[in-house]
Design a protein around this nucleic acid. Structure first.
Lengths: 193, 193
DNA sequence: TTTATTTGGTAACAAATGTGGAGCAAATGA
DNA sequence: TCATTTGCTCCACATTTGTTACCAAATAAA
């Protein structure tokens, strides 16, 4: 499947572009390969780009003052990838984005995207909608923590991303759930009994 | 203090407007009074406005399927108030916003705001920056839940909003912290011993 | 290959949090 | 005034989660 088709699949759910618009849009994207354990973005860098994940798995994490790292999110095939805070404010990123499999992304620079906003307003609409979705996801994630137990959160994650357990190590998942890997182990044992 | 001055105080930290711009901007705001326990926005309504809280305290909460209500945020004097998801997407709000004291807000309609964006681009910048801050706040809130214990979250809240404990009932705070009011009571006892 | 290192798992104990019951003081209403 | 409700605290007990230590399997490195 070529670049244009992959973009089209991902965009069609939100806005529909003519072949010409799609072609112009896709020209601005560059293929980027990232090896396992390499960074797509490091804390302190400015995220002046957006990526569409073609292949692989990425994790978002933040380094805390005490040296701990906390996993805030994952990205799978089809997900848009960027550090929203950094991109919006054009300021250094507070988070890291790292590949935990060999991965491939289609990447567009923020500047090129801004240019396209002017030429194809529908793309600006796409941008706004993706931003909204990102915000809503954050709100939902928050409520998850507020009202659900660790076990419930695990089961909800299981339902939402069944693939995650084949591709992401358990300590990353525990970290994401905000619990100790041992606690996760216990929860898993309990469920599969 | 008049309307213009209140707006100016709140905006100055982000963008600086000329007297003329400020005057034009402030004309679009209308004063709205809300009695204790009345709603600024109900679930299902569309938030086609933004408010600046002059006086009072509001809480944001979401009704869950099982009938529970969970407090997701508070607003105090000087805070901008709206349902971001609803306003951005012009769709029904998923949350409620209610006054827990007699309150007063300066309210601007989304349509008027959009008109002003065109006349005063600096205001659009203000809008973008406030959106960013809201997003960042959400991210921080998330990390709070992920890494801190209930006790730590209580102490962080105490540090961030010392006024909250004089003005918001403890069961609202417990709800916001994601714990049982009894647990909060115990934590408080523990701290003040 | 052999040897470290990483990863996932178990068990035992400690600490934190939830649950249900009870009491008390302040606010509210008849 | 008196009764009721509401918000808060405390107690005892159950459940959940964290901590530490240890082991086995998988993986990486030599």
């Amino acid at each position: 499947m070529d670049k244009i088709q992959k973009l089209k699949n991902r965009i069609d759910t939100v806005v529909s572009l003519t072949d010409e618009e799609l072609s112009m849009f896709s020209k601005a994207f560059v293929l980027k390969k990232i090896s396992k354990n390499d960074f797509f973005l490091k804390e302190g860098q400015i995220a002046n780009f957006i990526g569409l994940l073609n292949q692989g798995v990425l994790i978002y994490f933040k380094s805390m003052d005490n040296g701990d790292e906390i996993t805030t999110d994952f990205a799978f095939e089809g997900d848009w990838v960027t550090a929203i805070q950094s991109r919006l404010s054009n300021s250094p990123s507070l988070i890291n984005i790292k590949a935990i499999e060999n991965s491939e992304l289609l990447v567009i620079k923020q500047q090129d995207l801004s240019d396209i906003y002017i030429k194809i307003p529908k793309i600006e609409r796409l941008g706004r909608i993706l931003m909204e979705q990102a915000y809503l996801k954050m709100v939902e994630q928050n409520i998850d923590f507020q009202v659900f137990s660790a076990k419930d959160r695990y089961e909800r994650l299981l339902k939402k991303h069944p693939q995650i357990f084949q591709r992401v190590q358990l300590y990353h998942i525990a970290n994401y759930l905000g619990i100790d890997p041992k606690s996760l182990s216990r929860i898993r044992k309990q469920i599969f009994d």
